[in-house]
Each structure stands twice: as structure tokens, then as C-alpha cells.
Design a protein around this nucleic acid. Structure first.
Length: 649
DNA sequence: GTAGGGTTAG
């Protein structure tokens, strides 16, 4: 995307005027500079070489030419102009602009030794202070660009030792180069000289802090909150929004989006970067309404969006993760240029829907188009194989990671494989894979094995997995619940009590399950046994009626059970009932409030349990409705009495 | 007339 900030527009339009046509009356050197500024580097150099300058090559054109050489990666041309400048006595310090341009060019091209040499040749005493500052800034920026943080800080110390004052530009290079633990110190230094609230520096601090997880996001937020309102620009909002989006704080990201657009936030118009962050959070949460609104905005206001690869990728990811694969596919097909992210987003979406074969063929097509898969694409592919039970394919692709694609499997790939093997019932093979890992297994890997043991009711392997996972993630209640359920399923009730006691002693509570449905632009959220919804009475009556119907249908239920269920129904409005999971409530709400024929979409934070799963299958048949449920690991589409997961999840 | 800030997939 073009940079559309006001000042760049202004300089750009004047550059356009000057570059103008070849007959322009503007001085020749001004046209060279203008062409460089417009990024028309080849034309700029052609004018320098073949134009008819009178007087001959001019000090005023040389700095721009050097920048053009750097942009075109022509180090020998930089050296030629360098030599020319030296011959004319413009160096080492007579022409600050040429010096600065050379420093920038060498730094950008990675000729940092040459840049240092040039810097060392500058006479500290006789060179104007601003020239020195710019010179240091150029080389510090170059070291930052080439990921040489130690060199950045060494230069910074030299700069300070020489009593050269740093400015905002120095900080813009230094802050992102600093190790995360050092950023607060640089921040404090910036604050001491009053730069920390300057727009560019604050924006830079925000995006740098954003790399530091949820804690970093909190620091980023503080920088943003401390900025004077007048200093906040669109980039500030984008940076702080992304800081939250990237660190799993999706609710806060969407909240920031609402705030920036509200009058209180200044009614800031979002751009493509904002939208990318918002869509990522909306996809995460399953916030369908937000995603659709934002897409509408994109189609109305950003007509060129199809050529913005990141924006299209964000849209594809949103639709793929929120239940609309055809829309994701259409966006994918309409992109003139795709990246590996586009393929991965679509592939992962198919994997989540259980379309393992589609994911595999997308992967093959991607490879045949010359895109080399990366680790993320492989995670998507392996998890697609796992969800679809494609045991042989999964093993094959896992082994090609190193042999064909030179990718070293990470913990995430091992997690996928343990999941794949474990769910296919190959618990021993999964165990062997864990012991063959070149790095220690983490909680997710052991957790995948534990989950497989739940499916296959294997106490022995389950206990081993549990012992390991509890060591690694002692505060994750989900694993205790899994182990306790394995004991329940195998009738070991004393062990169930033991695991529950462990949870109590450690003060752990199971994460409450919640599901939501969006209807007419509003989110309707349900927790298990939650009566707070205005329609709670009707919803519970419907669930209980459906439960009864399911029971009658499945097993020819006994009289006593019918009576008990009727008793429950009578009490429904009066007092909370036990044991109605949130997805049943959400689906019942959908049935009561939507038209026949439309699909009911439910987003859930935990995985669907076996009971709810068979309930929803039967209800989809008897009500002749389709339910699309996104749970913590994948999609289930219930329609006509069957689920798209084929009961493999 | 030099130096420069924000974005995606699991």
C-alpha cells in the first residue's frame, strides 16, 4: 500500500511537479532529486549519466544519485560517485549531504565496514553538529537493518561519548534493535529527553513492546495511553491494536477498534493495516458480525483491496476460520498474486472442517506452483490430516519435512503427529515418537497424548501423559479434567475423586464452557446452566423437550426417565438446572429465533462433549436444520443426523 | 537537500 500520510503526499506532489517532463525548466539537479524521491531510480541515474547538464555534474545531484544506486543495489556505482566526490574535494566533510547519502547507501547495502571508515574520517571538531548526528543515525540505522544490535549500541555509545546529541531518528533505529529486556531502558532514556511521547518514537515503542507477549502488550498499551491525544495518529492506533491482536488479546483489540472510530477516540478512519489486525482478532474470536462489517467497509472504501496480499489473506483467514469456506475460496481465486500465507489460510480452514483431502490437494498444488512450504503450512497440513484421520498421509508428509523441504519439525509439528497417531489408536507409536524427539516435549505434546487416551480409554498411557503434563503445566485445569474423565469412563471412581481433590488443593477451576450465536447484529452468549438470557425459560423448555425426544428416539426410554424429565421441565423456569452445556442452549436459541433453512452458527471455547455431539446429530435430523459449531479444535457441521467430523474428533 | 514509524497464517 502507498503511504498516504499528509506530509508524504505533499512532498510527493511537489516532486511530481519537478520531475515533470524532460523540457522542464527546473534545474537539472532538482529533476534528479525529484526522480529519486519518487522512486524512479533508473530514470534518475539515466538523467545523471546521459542528460545534458550545464554546468557538469553538480554537487546538488550527487546525493540523490547515491540513494538511487543504493535502491538499485549497485555498490560499484556508489563507489564511483564516492571517488568523484573525493576528487572534487566534497569529502570527507565539505558536503554534508553527499557524506550522509554515502553513509546511508553503504549502510543499506551492508557495506558497514566502508560506512564505519567514512564515519571515522569525519573531523569531529570541524564538522557541524547536525551533520555528525545525521552521520551516526545513518550508520546506526544500517546496522539495525542488517540485524547487528551490538554494533548499533556500540555506535550509540560512541555518539554519546563524542557529545553528539541523539534525536528521534536515532531512537527509531535503536528501539527495535534492542533486546526486549533493554527496551525499557532505552524508553526511559527517551522519556528523559522528552522524545517518548513524540508520535514516531511512541509508535515505535508500541510496536517493539508488542513483541513481548501479553506483558509486552500491556507496556505497549501504557505508551499509547500516555501519548497526548494530539500526538496519536492512525499508526499509533494500528500499532496498539496489533499489539493486542498479536498477543491473543483479541477482545481488547476489537475494543480499541470501536474506540478509535468513536467520537471519544477521535473518529479515526481505519486503513488496510487496521483492518488486518481487526480481522485477525475477529477470526480468533469467531466474531462474525465484526468481520462482516469490516469486510463491507473494505469493499466500499478500499476498492483496490484485491492487490493487497496481507488484507486478502486476513479476509481468507477470517472466512476459513469462521465457517465460510466458499467465501474464503472465492477471495483466494480472485487474488492476482498469492503468498504462502494465502495458501496456508485456506488449507488450514479446510483442515478445521475435516476436509483433509482438499487440504492435501491444496498443499500439492501450492508446491507444484513453486512455493516452498514453511513450518506454518506444515502445521496446517498435519493438523488437517489429523482431523480427517489421514494416518498414512500425515506420516508421509511429516517425514518429507526434513528430507524434502529441509524443515526441522518444531513442538507444534510433534503435537500434530502425536494427535494423529493417538487418535488413530496408535498410542504406543505416539509414545515412541515423543521419546524420539530431539527436544523435550512440552505440555501440548503430552496433552495431545492424554487426549488420545481419553478417546481410547487407556488408563496406563494416560497416567504417564498426565504425570508429565501436570509437571509442565500444573495450573492448566483442562488436563485434570481429561484425566478424571478417563477414570470416569473406566469406572475408577476413587481415582476420579483423587484427581478432583488435586484440583481443589491447587485451587484450580475448570474453565467454564461458553457458546455464542450472533443474531441480528447482537451476540448471544451462553454458559452451562446459565439462566441470564431474557429468553431463558423458552430456551430451557426447548432443550429439555429435545433431550427427551433424543432419549426416546435412541433407546426407547423407560417410564421413570420420562417422568423425571417432565419434572425437570416443570422446574426449569424456577431454578437453575445442572448439566446443560452451553452449545445446547445456543442451538436452542437459534432454533427459536431463526428461519427454517438457515444454518445456525455456534462458536464455542471448549471442545464439544460426546453427549452434546450425539444430541446435536439427532436434533439436526428431527428439526431439519443444520448447525455449524466451531469448537476449540475444529468445525462440526451437523446436518441430517450426521456430523461432518464423521464422529472422529 | 541527508536519517525514519504500523500489518498477515498455526
Amino acid at each position: 500500500m502507498r503511504n498516504d500520510s499528509p506530509w508524504s503526499m505533499a512532498t510527493e506532489s511537489s516532486a511530481v511537479a519537478v520531475a515533470g517532463d524532460a523540457n522542464s525548466t527546473e534545474p537539472w539537479s532538482a529533476r534528479v532529486r525529484a526522480l529519486t524521491r519518487l522512486g524512479r531510480h533508473r530514470e534518475s541515474l539515466a538523467l545523471l549519466r546521459h542528460g545534458d547538464p550545464s554546468p557538469p555534474p553538480h554537487a546538488l545531484a550527487l546525493p540523490a544519485s547515491v540513494i538511487s544506486c543504493a535502491a538499485l543495489s549497485l555498490p560499484s556505482s556508489v563507489a564511483q560517485i564516492h571517488a568523484l566526490g573525493a576528487k572534487r574535494g566534497l569529502l570527507p566533510a565539505a558536503d554534508a549531504y553527499l557524506l550522509s547519502a554515502l553513509l546511508t547507501a553503504y549502510s543499506r547495502l551492508g557495506s558497514l565496514r566502508l560506512a564505519h571508515q567514512l564515519l571515522d574520517e569525519m573531523p569531529l571538531e570541524s564538522t557541524p553538529h547536525t551533520t555528525l548526528r545525521t552521520a551516526f543515525n545513518s550508520v546506526i540505522s544500517g546496522c539495525a537493518l542488517h540485524a547487528l544490535p551490538v554494533a548499533c549500541f556500540a555506535l550509540f555509545h560512541r555518539m554519546r561519548a563524542a557529545a553528539v546529541r541523539f534525536d528521534a531518528v536515532t531512537l527509531l533505529a535503536l528501539v527495535p534493535a534492542a533486546p526486549l529486556s533493554v527496551v525499557p531502558q532505552v524508553h526511559a532514556l527517551a522519556a528523559r529527553v522528552g522524545f517518548a511521547t513524540e508520535t514516531s518514537v511512541a509508535n515505535c515503542l508500541i510496536s517493539t513492546y508488542a513483541r513481548g507477549g501479553a506483558f509486552g502488550a500491556a507496556l505497549a498499551r501504557r505508551v499509547f495511553d500516555e501519548m497526548p491525544l494530539a500526538s496519536r495518529d492512525l499508526v499509533s492506533w494500528n500499532a496498539v491494536l496489533s499489539a493486542h491482536a498479536q498477543n491473543g488479546l483479541a477482545v481488547d483489540a476489537l475494543d480499541l477498534y470501536r474506540r478509535m472510530r468513536s467520537p471519544e477516540g477521535g473518529g479515526v478512519e481505519p486503513d488496510a493495516v487496521t483492518i488486518v489486525g481487526v480481522l485477525s482478532s475477529a477470526a480468533h474470536l469467531g466474531a462474525l458480525g465484526v468481520g462482516f462489517d469490516v469486510e463491507h467497509y473494505v469493499r466500499q472504501r478500499l476498492p483496490g483491496f484485491r492487490t493487497n496480499v496481507q488484507l486478502c489473506n486476513a479476509l481468507i483467514n477470517f472466512h476459513a476460520r469462521c465457517g465460510s469456506l466458499p467465501r474464503a475460496q472465492q477471495l483466494f481465486d480472485e487474488m492476482p498474486r498469492k503468498s504462502i500465507v494465502s495458501w496456508t489460510a485456506l488449507l488450514t480452514g479446510h483442515g478445521m472442517h475435516g476436509n483433509g483431502d482438499v487440504a492435501v490437494s491444496l498443499f500439492e498444488r501450492m508446491v507444484s506452483e513453486g512455493i516452498r512450504p514453511d513450518n506454518v503450512a506444515m502445521v496446517g497440513l498435519l493438523s488437517a490430516c489429523s482431523h480427517a484421520g489421514l494416518y498414512d498421509e500425515g506420516r508421509k508428509y511429516f517425514s518429507t519435512m526434513e528430507s524434502v523441504y529441509k524443515l526441522r519439525p518444531t513442538l507444534e509439528h510433534y503435537t500434530c503427529m502425536v494427535d494423529l497417531l493417538g487418535r488413530a489408536g496408535r498410542l504406543e507409536e505416539a509414545r515412541e515418537l515423543i521419546s524420539s524427539m530431539p527436544m523435550p516435549a512440552d505440555g501440548a505434546v503430552w496433552g495431545a497424548l492424554l487426549g488420545a487416551c481419553k478417546i481410547h480409554k487407556n488408563v496406563e498411557v494416560g497416567e504417564e501423559a498426565f504425570a508429565n503434563v501436570v509437571e509442565l503445566e500444573p495450573r492448566n485445569a483442562g488436563y485434570y479434567v481429561l484425566m478424571s474423565n478417563i477414570y470416569t469412563d473406566t469406572g475408577q471412581l476413587d481415582n476420579v475423586a483423587r484427581v478432583r481433590a488435586m484440583m481443589r488443593e491447587r485451587g484450580l477451576k475448570k474453565e467454564p464452557g461458553c457458546s455464542y450465536v450472533e443474531h441480528k447484529g447482537r451476540v448471544h452468549l451462553f454458559m452451562a446452566d446459565d439462566h441470564s438470557h431474557p429468553q431463558a425459560r423458552r430456551i430451557y423448555e426447548l432443550v429439555i423437550r429435545l433431550e427427551l425426544m433424543v432419549k426416546e428416539k435412541s433407546s426407547g426410554v423407560r417410564e421413570s426417565e420420562v417422568a423425571a424429565a417432565k419434572g425437570r421441565m416443570e422446574k426449569a423456569a424456577a431454578q437453575p438446572l445442572v448439566g446443560i452445556h452451553s452449545e445446547k442452549l445456543a442451538v436452542a436459541f437459534g432454533l427459536l429465533n431463526t428461519e427454517a433453512g438457515s444454518e445456525i452458527v455456534v462458536i464455542k471455547n471448549l471442545r464439544v462433549c460426546g453427549d452434546c455431539h450425539s444430541f446435536l446429530k439427532v436434533v439436526s435430523a428431527t428439526t431439519n436444520r443444520a448447525f455449524l459449531v466451531r469448537d476449540a479444535s475444529r468445525f462440526h457441521r451437523f446436518d441430517g443426523g450426521v456430523c461432518s467430523c464423521k464422529d472422529y474428533w
